[in-house]
Amino acid sequence: MGIDRREFIRIAGLSTLLGLGGKGAFELLRPGQVEASMAAKPAAEGVVRWAMVVNMRKMDDDTAKKCAAACHRVHNVPNFAQPKDPKDALPPDIVNRYEVKWIWPEHFHNAFPGEEHPHMPEQMKNLPFLLLCNHCDNPPCVRVCPTKATFRREDGIVNMDMHRCIGCRFCMAGCPFGARSFNWKDPRPYITDTYPGYPTREIGMVEKCTFCAERLAQNMMPACVEASSGALVFGDLNDERSQVRATLKRYFSIRRKVHLGTNPQVYYIV
């Protein structure tokens, strides 16, 4: 944003003069910013914008389980209900508290609270909606992080730098989707089958889905997409010929909590 002091004073003075508080001043200084948080960013040439479509027409409990398992396996996500050593077993309420999850199934009324009504198709109520980080265009977690440990990449991925995280958990309070997990306890004793292609974590940092940034770098699809037998579609939203664009064009889709203005980039076809 190239704006010098003189111009700033001019614009600030103008907007005050005209009584254009709030959005008015915003419009002058950073045109389009307010709209940007509401609508998808316009496509720029050659820029990638990763997005995911969850096609609930193809989703069933088995597929959902497979997707979550595939993700959690290749990212060494611990399962606190299954310790390597039976000595480390934890009671169920504690397992629930410590739980780390990157992608997990949830019923409609939990995935879309407030959107359910008694007359909707019975079958829809019980479908496993896969929830994960929405890689928002306007992510509150990035806004609140005091160290830029979580940051938005130019291709839209909201990534975590676990080397930098101080474990303040402001991002967990900031995320309106419950997509973030904290390492309350050392995860290693709860990873039965350590996957050698990805690090584990230490206590005290926050983690979440990264859209498989490490796999994308090797031209591979995210692990959950590979395991989904077509129920998950992933691709470049800025590429007109991509499968995500085609799917979104063909079917009506919804997103979680759009009214909060975070502009989530995981779409659900219902």
Partner: peptide
């Protein structure tokens, strides 16, 4: 290496795996 890999594609960050 760590910064280059983890912060790939961050605006203004050094890139490269």
């Amino acid at each position: 290496w760590r910064d280059n890999v983890v912060r790939t594609n961050e605006k203004g960050a050094p890139n490269g795996r």
